[in-house]
Protein backbone atom coordinates (compact mmCIF):
# COMPACT_ATOMS: atom_id res chain seq x y z
CA UNK A 1 0.00 0.00 0.00
CA UNK A 2 1.36 3.41 -0.88
CA UNK A 3 1.38 6.27 1.57
CA UNK A 4 -0.36 9.57 0.93
CA UNK A 5 1.16 12.64 2.51
CA UNK A 6 0.27 16.30 2.44
CA UNK A 7 1.76 19.58 3.50
CA UNK A 8 0.51 23.15 3.37
CA UNK A 9 2.84 25.85 2.07
CA UNK A 10 2.35 29.61 1.98
CA UNK A 11 3.56 31.50 -1.08
CA UNK A 12 6.12 34.06 0.10
CA UNK A 13 7.52 35.06 -3.29
CA UNK A 14 6.17 38.59 -3.95
CA UNK A 15 5.48 37.60 -7.56
CA UNK A 16 3.46 34.58 -6.48
CA UNK A 17 3.56 31.06 -7.87
CA UNK A 18 4.37 32.16 -11.42
CA UNK A 19 5.67 30.24 -14.42
CA UNK A 20 9.26 29.69 -13.33
CA UNK A 21 8.55 28.39 -9.82
CA UNK A 22 5.83 26.20 -11.31
CA UNK A 23 8.35 24.90 -13.83
CA UNK A 24 10.76 24.07 -10.99
CA UNK A 25 7.91 22.38 -9.13
CA UNK A 26 7.05 20.22 -12.15
CA UNK A 27 10.72 19.31 -12.61
CA UNK A 28 10.85 18.20 -8.97
CA UNK A 29 7.62 16.22 -9.40
CA UNK A 30 9.00 14.56 -12.51
CA UNK A 31 11.90 13.19 -10.49
CA UNK A 32 9.24 10.99 -8.86
CA UNK A 33 7.36 9.66 -11.88
CA UNK A 34 5.60 6.93 -9.90
CA UNK A 35 4.06 9.39 -7.43
CA UNK A 36 0.72 11.09 -7.81
CA UNK A 37 1.19 14.82 -7.10
CA UNK A 38 -1.63 17.31 -6.64
CA UNK A 39 -1.80 20.93 -5.53
CA UNK A 40 -4.96 22.36 -4.05
CA UNK A 41 -6.10 25.80 -3.05
CA UNK A 42 -8.95 26.29 -0.59
CA UNK A 43 -12.24 26.10 -2.43
CA UNK A 44 -10.78 24.68 -5.62
CA UNK A 45 -10.35 21.14 -6.90
CA UNK A 46 -6.86 19.66 -6.60
CA UNK A 47 -4.78 20.44 -9.69
CA UNK A 48 -2.47 18.00 -11.44
CA UNK A 49 0.96 18.80 -9.99
CA UNK A 50 2.66 18.14 -13.32
CA UNK A 51 0.52 20.45 -15.46
CA UNK A 52 1.71 24.01 -16.05
CA UNK A 53 -1.74 25.11 -17.20
CA UNK A 54 -3.52 23.51 -14.24
CA UNK A 55 -1.10 25.09 -11.75
CA UNK A 56 -1.29 28.51 -13.42
CA UNK A 57 -5.05 28.29 -13.30
CA UNK A 58 -4.92 28.02 -9.50
CA UNK A 59 -3.91 31.72 -9.37
CA UNK A 60 -1.59 31.84 -6.37
CA UNK A 61 -0.26 35.31 -5.50
CA UNK A 62 1.91 35.96 -2.44
CA UNK A 63 0.17 34.87 0.74
CA UNK A 64 -1.77 32.02 -0.88
CA UNK A 65 -1.85 28.72 1.00
CA UNK A 66 -1.44 25.63 -1.15
CA UNK A 67 -1.84 22.03 -0.05
CA UNK A 68 0.66 19.71 -1.72
CA UNK A 69 -0.40 16.07 -1.68
CA UNK A 70 1.79 13.18 -2.75
CA UNK A 71 1.05 9.48 -2.86
CA UNK A 72 3.08 6.58 -4.12
CA UNK A 73 6.56 5.20 -3.59
CA UNK A 74 9.04 7.54 -1.83
CA UNK A 75 6.20 9.96 -1.15
CA UNK A 76 7.92 11.50 1.89
CA UNK A 77 11.06 12.24 -0.09
CA UNK A 78 9.04 13.62 -3.00
CA UNK A 79 6.99 15.86 -0.72
CA UNK A 80 10.14 17.23 0.86
CA UNK A 81 11.64 17.98 -2.57
CA UNK A 82 8.42 19.71 -3.69
CA UNK A 83 8.12 21.83 -0.56
CA UNK A 84 11.74 22.93 -0.98
CA UNK A 85 10.87 24.53 -4.31
CA UNK A 86 8.86 27.15 -2.40
CA UNK A 87 11.98 28.21 -0.52
CA UNK A 88 13.87 29.08 -3.71
CA UNK A 89 14.18 32.66 -4.91
CA UNK A 90 13.23 33.01 -8.56
CA UNK A 91 13.27 36.74 -8.98
CA UNK A 92 16.72 38.01 -8.17
CA UNK A 93 17.95 37.23 -11.69
CA UNK A 94 14.81 38.58 -13.29
CA UNK A 95 15.45 42.28 -12.87
CA UNK A 96 12.66 44.47 -14.15
CA UNK A 97 13.38 46.51 -17.27
CA UNK A 98 13.15 50.23 -16.47
Amino acid sequence: MSESLRQTVTITNPNGFHMRPIEAFIMAANRYPDCNVTVAKAGKDPANGRSMLALLELYSPAGTELVIEVSGPRAAEALQALVQVFQLNFDEEEQPTR
Binding site: G16, H18, M19, L53, A54, E57, L58, Y59, P61
Partner: peptide
Protein backbone atom coordinates in the same frame (compact mmCIF):
# COMPACT_ATOMS: atom_id res chain seq x y z
CA UNK B 1 3.50 47.02 -15.85
CA UNK B 2 6.07 46.86 -13.06
CA UNK B 3 4.94 45.98 -9.56
CA UNK B 4 1.62 44.41 -10.52
CA UNK B 5 2.37 40.72 -10.06
CA UNK B 6 -1.20 39.76 -9.23
CA UNK B 7 -2.46 41.20 -12.51
CA UNK B 8 0.09 39.10 -14.41
CA UNK B 9 -1.02 36.00 -12.48
CA UNK B 10 -4.67 36.78 -13.22
CA UNK B 11 -3.89 37.00 -16.92
CA UNK B 12 -1.98 33.70 -16.79
CA UNK B 13 -4.96 32.17 -15.01
CA UNK B 14 -7.40 33.20 -17.73
CA UNK B 15 -5.05 32.23 -20.57
CA UNK B 16 -4.49 28.83 -18.91
CA UNK B 17 -8.21 28.25 -18.45
CA UNK B 18 -8.70 28.64 -22.20
CA UNK B 19 -5.59 26.75 -23.27
CA UNK B 20 -6.57 23.73 -21.16
Amino acid sequence: PQERPSEHLRALESVSRCLK
